[in-house]
Amino acid sequence: MLNVQTSEIENRAVKLGTTDGTKVHAKDVNVYYGDKRALFDVTVNIPDRSVTAFIGPSGCGKSTFLRCINRMNDTIPICRVTGKITIDNEDIYDPSLDVVQLRARVGMVFQKPNPFPKSIYENVAYGPRIHGLAGTKAELDHIVQTSLEKAALWKEVKDRLNDPGTGLSGGQQQRLCIARAVAVGPEVILMDEPCSALDPIATAKVEELIDELKQNFCIIIVTHSMQQAARVSQRTAFFHLGILVEEGATNDIFTNPTDKRTQDYITGRFG
């Protein structure tokens, strides 16, 4: 079983032209908000089909870096990004690349659940519709159903697909947003503190879901909860004051950090 999985990853890596299974690669990424520099020379490799957690105190730049990966920072007029970020060896800041196509490949789930004021069905069908992923109503129904199933929400909402998405509970709304992102068929899913607005039970459900989704997607999650990072992620990156301090296997970071700052943060001495 393990062998099969390993060889699958290797196959995919070969197909994508990378040898180490890297999905997202960032080199010397700097971000400026006007004159203020928010990120300093961030260089990191993020593997496919696993969960990578970004941790660090508030204002450390972890969300800023996350938003570079789908160029969401483009929507902020004063924000400027330098350096290079590639997905499957393709430069996402290449002027010839359409940001719309990029965002279809890199889905995003936000801190606060933000379902559109439409029905549950329309929320999930939104992405496939604008990208023309479904030719017929039956295909669209199928995409909606599988996406909701992947987001572990189908059983709860299958009888009320036409109810407004805003009427769901917070945890359900966040899973609806995950289903909405999954429906577009992305390769990478960015999650910006996806559980910070949820209660512990809803958080557990979303974490369970993240664990399942990693079989098919490259997941990057920003979190304030170190327990959450330890629970769901395989790799962890610690940011501090805009600098990527340390990055490595989650076990190593939490049990044997090499940097003093990382150690101080995970033992709760600051942050």
Binding site: L102, G107, Y126, G127
Partner: peptide, 8 residues
């Protein structure tokens, strides 16, 4: 942002 994030 939710809409842009889906590639709209």
């Amino acid at each position: 942002e939710g809409s842009y994030g889906l590639g709209a």
